[in-house]
Design a protein around this nucleic acid. Structure first.
Length: 247
DNA sequence: GAGTATGTTATATG
DNA sequence: GCATATAACATACT
């Protein structure tokens, strides 16, 4: 998106379904964006920001959202909820079947992060900082990983992977874990995310030994320690190896 | 029709 | 007050 759109001017805004707008209505959203140029793009956790010089367009993809630059003849995706027309004939589609994502406007990245109480970015966080933010909680460690106020950017799948790599049972209360264990988890988080990026987010392209390459009930443990089990933690399906991730 | 799904948040319950 | 659980959002798929 940055490559395709940086330097372009927004010449038209079409909101096809107003329900994806967060905190403002169609007319003010369009007015805020129209005529502005895309200066830069930023990210904090799962939240995306498009710097329009003075204001930020905020984008969250939810579970099924996608931002797609479209060529002049290219078809608009089926569940496009908003369409930005850029100069030079380029269009940018926000496609989101389940509409769990959202578009909005914010004054700055810092302000947005503060307002939402988002934790540090999971890709950049140090193991020490992760440990200090999670060590004293009685909550299940997986619920902490998914709590964007503790750490911003880890979702259900990558939480499972990081816990597997650190050999931690997903429902362990984090305060019962040794400093060493928590530190191993803190180191696993950015490593897992980097691997996923390197794999183009295709789970089958992840390195050997990753649980996510075959995450399903009864799938073999990549370490050869039996097979995976599924439980619910924090309402989310959680796959783990009962043999190497002991409670 | 039931149940599931890579997310977040408001409300309910213990 | 705290933590956890559930519902809600909307669509696709098995």
């Amino acid at each position: 998106m940055d490559r395709a759109c940086r330097g372009r001017k927004i010449v038209g805004v079409r909101v096809l379904d107003e329900r994806i707008l967060e905190g403002l209505a169609r007319p003010s959203f369009s007015a805020a964006l129209k005529g502005r140029s895309i200066d830069a793009t930023y990210r904090h956790g799962k939240q995306l920001f498009v710097d329009l010089g003075g204001i930020m367009l905020t984008i969250h993809l939810g579970m099924t959202g996608d931002v797609a630059p479209l060529g002049p003849r290219e078809h608009v995706p089926r569940h496009t909820r908003a369409l930005l027309k850029l100069d030079g004939g380029l269009r940018l589609a926000y496609d989101d079947p389940r509409m769990f994502g959202a578009l909005g406007v914010a004054a700055s990245v810092e302000g947005f992060v503060k307002d939402r109480g988002l934790g540090p970015d999971a890709l950049l966080v140090s193991a020490d900082e992760f440990v200090s933010r999670s060590a004293r909680s009685s909550r299940a460690v997986k619920a902490l990983l998914l709590d964007q106020r503790v750490l911003a950017g880890v979702g259900n799948l990558y939480a499972d992977e990081a816990l597997f790599q650190a050999r931690i049972h997903p429902s362990s209360p984090s305060r019962g874990l040794s400093g060493r264990r928590l530190e191993a988890l803190g180191m696993a988080i950015p490593r897992v995310l980097q691997s996923s990026i390197a794999a183009g987010t295709y789970l089958s392209n992840l390195p050997e030994g990753y649980l996510l390459r075959d995450r399903g009930p009864g799938a073999p443990c990549p370490r050869g320690d039996g097979h995976l089990a599924m439980i619910r933690v924090g309402g989310r399906a959680s796959f783990f190896c009962p043999a190497c991730q002991k409670a």
